[in-house]
């Protein structure tokens, strides 16, 4: 099978099984990286949990941008909606069970996805990008103004999740939150692997390449993309809820243009149209950001910029995409 693009959905009979293997390998890699992180940075689990939450946002963005070709710089709206919903449920309504908070986050993310999808999908290309930017500013401003609910610019505090399954308290070191996050990431990852390979995933891939062709096959690109937006919102909502539960505070930055743009940067860094690419990009970006900003607090942004330029110039398919293409080429060579 050829895997010269980063789309891991291209399927062939021998690849049929290879794809299932890829799932297992991906799962193993996630768990391995998670375990290594746990033992290497036992005092910095909060950062690792933040990386997981960001990874969920980037995976969510990959669904609409990488797999469907929708241009958006407002994807944090879905993440922030999830974070605020989970936070408000706990801070204002006393719903402190982490799984219930997660459910609120998922639903709010999906609803935000539906709203954003309906608006953004009305346009294409540059106008679409502008609409997405307008949306994230609207979401941000709404959260800012509704301060009695959201805490406005002070952030939402008073989030107090109870023990997970009434057994595991969210401890000061963030161990429970980290394990919870890894478990969520694994579940989401496996579900998404199924979805991108499903008939619906194939339909979306077709829409990305040629929506007119899809229409002439009797399918509505708009309905399919809206559906993908809702799924994407649910995934981002998981990330948002995880963030609210683990940090026990929700700030306006979780609903910001900056976060939206950063998630797009992470996706491009790793490689669009691939779940592995989304994960790789997030880990590399967040980790690089953390290390470089500690090493040089004045010029770290410059270095992040340099890294980005290097990747875009020399590995336009992203880190994972380029690596995957290299491996495929080597495998195909006699």
């Amino acid at each position: 099978m050829t895997m010269t693009t980063t789309n891991e959905m291209t399927a062939a009979p021998p690849a049929h099984r290879r794809i299932a293997n890829a799932d297992l390998i991906g799962l193993a890699v996630i768990l391995l990286v998670a375990a290594v992180g746990y033992f290497l940075f036992p005092n910095n689990l909060a950062l690792l949990t933040r990386i997981i939450a960001a990874a969920l946002l980037v995976l969510s963005l990959d669904l609409v941008t990488g797999y469907c070709g929708v241009a958006t710089l407002g994807h944090a709206a879905l993440f922030g909606a999830g974070a605020y919903a989970a936070g408000i449920a706990s801070a204002h309504y006393g719903i402190n069970d982490p799984l219930a908070m997660l459910a609120f986050g998922i639903v709010a993310g999906a609803v935000a996805g539906l709203i954003c999808g309906v608006v953004i999908l009305r346009a294409h290309g540059l106008p679409q990008l502008v609409l997405s930017i307008a949306l994230i500013h609207l979401f941000h401003e709404f959260a800012n103004k509704a301060s009695s609910w959201t805490g406005g610019s002070d952030g939402l505090s008073g989030i107090a999740p109870t023990a997970l399954f009434s057994l595991y308290e969210f401890d000061l070191w963030g161990r429970t939150a980290y394990v919870f996050g890894v478990a969520l990431l694994v579940i989401v990852f496996l579900l998404l692997r199924l979805i991108v390979r499903s008939p619906f995933g194939m339909l979306c891939r077709g829409i990305k390449e040629d929506p007119i062709r899809i229409r002439s096959m009797g399918a509505s690109p708009k309905i399919a993309l809206t559906k993908m937006y809702v799924i994407s919102g649910a995934v981002a909502g998981v990330g948002g809820a995880l963030n609210a539960i683990s940090t026990q505070v929700v700030g306006l930055d979780s609903l910001s243009f900056t976060m939206s743009a950063e998630s797009l940067v992470m996706l491009v860094l790793g490689g669009t149209g691939s779940l592995f690419g989304a994960l790789t990009g997030t880990v590399v970006f967040m980790f690089f950001e953390d290390v470089v900003s500690a090493a040089n607090p004045f010029h770290w942004l410059t270095m992040v910029g340099a890294l980005l330029i290097a990747v875009v110039l020399f590995a336009p398919k992203g880190i994972y995409g380029t690596a995957a293409a290299l491996i495929t080429r080597r495998r195909e060579a006699p």
Binding site: S198, P199, F200, A224
Partner: peptide, 20 residues
């Protein structure tokens, strides 16, 4: 496969691979 699935109203399915 996409055309067949679309015709039979299954192109929106979230799970399962047409190869199977």
């Amino acid at each position: 496969a996409l055309a067949v699935l679309q015709r039979s109203g299954r192109a929106g399915r979230l799970f399962g691979n047409f190869l199977g």
